[in-house]
Simulated assay, not measured.
Amino acid sequence: MREVCVIGGNRYFGKRLIARLIAAGDRVTVVNRGSSPPPAGAVHLVADRDDEESLLKALGSRTFDVVVDQVCYTPRQAAVARRVFAGRTRRYVMTSTVEVYEYEDSLAPVREDAVDPRTVPVDLELPWDDEEFLEAHYGEGKRQAEAVLAADPAFPYTAVRVAHVLGGTDDFTGRLDHYASRIRTGAPVLVPTRNHPATYIHVEEIADFLAWAAGQDFTGPVNAASHGMLTTEELCEAVAARIPDAKTVFRRVQVGEVSPFSFTRSYGMDNSRATALGFAFGHTKEWLPRAVAETLGKGN
């Protein structure tokens, strides 16, 4: 039986990950601030992961086979985790994001080496505790968090760069609901003049991937994305299929706010590394109708 620590992870694909680990026979310890309990069967430790002393006190003398960090958003958080879990875990899995590629603009899907965390500058003095700053610099925060873990690693680690996640009745983002609302009323869906496709992954598939990655021994960044990129038009088509007499109206704009999942640059990730390592991804076209049905609350 493995000892697994999950930091955060009490909603969306995090809670699915925890359920999978428990079902596989792992002893799972969940660390969070106590705002919500973990799934049944997990050990619950209450601590503020930003507070090094709080985290050390909560963990006590516990050691783990693997830590899965679902809520590492800044280099400061990564630095705390690096100090706290050094000598305490055999493996560290950080949930990262496709947004680390925000400065790349390749029409071809990007590979992991497009952003080498060992070359990313780290600035711990930036206002990472400011919520507005952090929201505006989400991708950069993740890039620098990866960089902290990659610099003279204190433990073997991998950073899972997650594509845009869709599906589930508990999708809290409201992004597909945005499309449904506009399609129902005939309001225009605003997209950039040049609107690029992106890579996606189903909520169940990313939970599967993280559970799988926890048991592997590869290190460094890895992209997690289903096969097949999707355009905004394809997303809207799938949403419209669930709405009687639907009419989708697109309006292309050169400046200003656009609808979710509309991109002025390519957000495609190459998933060949993970595939070669042994994970079998599904295809977006296969699960998209299901994801839309789940999110809009109309069954499978």
Rank of each mutant, 00 (worst) to 15 (best):
V46Q: 06
V66M: 04
G174S: 02
A276F: 07
R27S: 15
A147R: 11
D208H: 09
D113C: 04
T97H: 06
S96D: 02
L56V: 03
P75D: 02
E3C: 05
A213Y: 08
E104T: 06
G215W: 09
Y73P: 00
K15E: 15
A42M: 08
T158S: 06
T173L: 06
L296H: 11
P188L: 07
R33M: 07
S259T: 03
G167D: 12
D177E: 14
A246D: 01
G297I: 07
V120Y: 09
A280K: 12
H227Y: 08
G25M: 13
A58K: 02
T29S: 01
F172P: 00
V43K: 08
P260C: 05
Q144I: 05
V31R: 01
P156S: 05
L166Y: 04
E125W: 05
F281S: 01
Q144K: 10
A187L: 10
F85K: 03
R33L: 14
D129G: 12
Y267T: 06
A24H: 09
V162H: 08
V98R: 10
D171S: 04
V28K: 01
E135N: 14
R62S: 13
F279V: 01
I206T: 01
A246I: 06
R2A: 08
R2G: 02
H178I: 10
Y103P: 02
D171V: 04
R252N: 02
A154E: 14
R184A: 13
Y157K: 01
G299S: 14
K247E: 14
T284Q: 00
V80P: 00
F155A: 08
H202N: 02
L59D: 10
T248P: 01
L235F: 13
A108E: 15
R290V: 15
D208C: 12
T95K: 05
N300G: 09
G278K: 13
H137L: 12
S36R: 08
P156L: 09
T169K: 11
A240H: 03
A213F: 09
L59W: 04
D113Q: 11
F172Q: 13
L45V: 03
T185P: 01
K142G: 03
G167A: 09
G139I: 10
F133G: 03
H164S: 15
A246C: 04
A214M: 09
Y138W: 09
A24G: 14
W212V: 02
T199R: 07
G25P: 00
V189C: 08
E3S: 15
K298S: 13
A240K: 02
G168P: 01
G282A: 02
A293I: 06
G41V: 03
H227W: 08
T231L: 08
V122D: 14
P221Y: 04
H202I: 00
H283A: 10
A238I: 00
T232L: 12
K247S: 13
L235I: 14
L134Q: 14
V189Q: 06
E125L: 13
I206V: 15
V46S: 05
G299H: 11
S36H: 07
I243E: 00
L45W: 11
V100M: 12
T248Y: 05
Y200W: 13
R111G: 15
